[in-house]
Structure formats: C-alpha cells, structure tokens
C-alpha cells in the first residue's frame, strides 16, 4: 500500500477511505463466496438434476422433489427433526436451572462451573460413543439402572420406540452445558440494585426470577435459543455415530438422510441429496430470518 501512495498519491489520498474497507474485506469475502455463498446456489441448481457426481447431470425439473413427497424415509426424518427441535429446547430451562444452582460463591465453585461445562468441550463423536456404552444392553449403566428399577431391560438404541429419544438425551447433555454457561455469564451481569429493590418490595423466589431476573437475562435467552434451534436441526454426528439412522431408518434426521442418499454405498444420488438439503435449508431459513430480523433491529437501535 505504501507503493500505491507513491505512484498515485492524489488518487489514493482522495479515495483511501472509500477503497480501504473493500481491500480489507477482499480475502475473507472471496473465501466466503467461493465456499459458502456460491455452493448454496449450486446445490439448488443440482437439486433439479439427476446426478451421480461423476457423469453428466440430467435435468429432471422438480423430479427429485416429487419423489420426496412419496418417500417414507423423508417423513420419518422430518418427524424426527421436529422431535429433536422441541426436546432440544429443554436444554434452555435445564441450563438455567444448573446456572442458578451454581451461581454461588463457595470455595471451589469455579472448578465446579468448569467441570459442569465439560461435556460441551468434548467432540460429539466421543459423546455418542459414551452414551452408546451407557445404553448398551446387558452391561450399560443405564440399562442396568433400568433393570434394577423396573425389572425389564430395554435396548434403547435398538428399539424403534425409544431410539430417537435416546440420541436426543445424549445431545441434551452438551447443549445444557452450553446454555448453562450463557446463563452464568448473564447472571453475573444482572443489575444487583434492581434485584435488591424488588426484594425490599417483598418479591422472592419464582416471582423474583420471573418478573425481575429473567427479563434481564433476555439476551442470554436469545442466544441460547439461536444455538439450540440451529444445533437441533444440524444434528448429524450423534445419529451417525450412535445408530447410523437405524434400526431400519427410524432414527434418521434430514441431515443424515441427505448424507446417506448423496454418498451411500449403493451409489451416489447427488441430485436427490441436494433436494433434501434444500428442504432443510428452507426450514432453517425460517429461523435464520427470525434471528437476523431481531439482531438487525438491535443493531439499528444501538
């Protein structure tokens, strides 16, 4: 840039303020456009084709989408995604409860907070393996506990009725830890004067929490909502590691179903996979738009 100054001092000096942001943006923006922005449109384009990933793409219009309407696995995945979304939201009140429990100042509390946060740092592959072991029939801790309590053993991950709930429980573990840390930070920053004033007026317990503390925690709740909704729709790792969608595809979710169709051992169906991805993308866009609209209004008020 010093060169530019010496060769064309007038031009650069006059336009520096205008050009500088674009020069700063260029490398990051270029990468982002190549690897994120363009592929979204390419995927939409591919979803109108029949393609094995190698040969020629054959235009089939809405063919893939028409096929989806009659695909039972698609509805199983969609239904499971909704179950994931609803149950995953439990991590928000659960995280708040743990945060309230830990928001004290006793010796060693910092270490407790870190250790409670632990599950979030561990890879989901490891979390999945841990819970597979936890649920394992005959010797898993959970199955043993269940046998002791009810006298009956259930192979959670092999049972069509329970498998999705079993995987979601594994997902709730790190997600609750994440929400907990958001709320702990939020609790750290609430206005103590307001809380004390409300206490003077006789408010306490649940009432104080609901009317005075929670409104102040709204930013934390918002972020917890964003990461939980996105996390639930993104669920892939746990399904892949714990059941690979089984038994008989009953624990599939859209993200895993798409992966399986596009890169399955029975041949690549990139077009069909892309169509599933587009549906998932559209579902996500509803939430992303809601989030962005809210963030935008905050940005304008700032």
């Amino acid at each position: 840039m010093t060169q530019a100054v010496s060769s064309a001092p007038g031009f650069w000096k006059k336009n520096q303020q205008k050009l500088a942001p674009w020069l700063f943006l260029a490398p990051g923006l270029l990468m982002f456009v190549i690897y994120v922005l363009v592929p979204i449109f390419q995927s939409i384009w591919i979803s109108f084709h029949d393609w094995d990933g190698l040969g020629e793409k054959v235009w089939i219009g809405l063919g893939n989408y028409v096929e989806l309407i009659d695909d039972e696995d698609f509805y199983t995945s969609l239904k499971n995604n909704i179950i994931w979304l609803v149950l995953y939201l439990l991590s928000i009140p659960a995280g708040l409860a743990v945060a309230l429990f830990l928001n004290q100042t006793v010796t060693g509390i910092r270490l407790y907070k870190s250790l409670f946060f632990f599950p979030f740092v561990i890879s989901q592959v490891v979390v999945g393996l841990m819970f597979t072991w936890f649920y394992a029939p005959d010797f898993g801790l959970f199955s043993q506990l269940l046998k002791w309590l009810t006298g009956e053993e259930v192979a959670v991950l092999a049972d069509e009725r329970y498998v999705t709930y079993g995987i979601i429980a594994a997902g709730l573990w790190p997600q609750t830890a994440y929400c907990m840390i958001l709320y702990l930070t939020g609790l750290n920053n609430i206005n103590p004067e307001q809380v004390e004033a409300a206490r003077m007026d006789g408010a306490k317990g649940a009432k104080l929490l609901w009317f005075v503390v929670l409104p102040q925690l709204a930013p934390a709740t918002f972020i917890a909502m964003v990461v939980t909704v996105i996390g639930s729709l993104r669920s892939f790792d746990l399904v892949s590691v714990m059941t690979a969608g089984g038994p008989y595809g009953t624990s599939q979710v859209l993200s895993y179903f798409m992966y399986e169709q596009a890169l399955s051992e029975y041949g690549y169906r990139m077009g069909y996979g892309a169509a599933i991805a587009v549906i998932l993308f559209l579902i996500m866009m509803i939430f992303i738009t809601l989030f962005i609209v809210r963030m935008l209004s905050q940005e304008r008020n700032a």
């Binding site: 363009v38 592929p39 979204i40 591919i46 990933g53 964003v226 596009a262 962005i292 935008l296």
Partner: peptide, 30 residues
C-alpha cells in the same frame, strides 16, 4: 467504515454461520 452494503455484508456473514452444512456438501466436495 461506513459504506453502502456494510450491514448487508455483515448479516451475510452472520447468516452463513447458521446454515446447514448439507446445503454445501455436494458442491464443496465437488
């Protein structure tokens, strides 16, 4: 910097962060 499109670009980065990986999978692999 204040320039036209600043906020749009910013929210494009933010939104990109939330999209499902699957919509990128086939083209990025290709």
């Amino acid at each position: 910097y204040k320039f036209k499109g600043n906020l749009i670009l910013f929210f494009m980065f933010v939104a990109g962060n939330f999209i499902p990986f699957q919509i990128l999978m086939v083209p990025v692999r290709d």
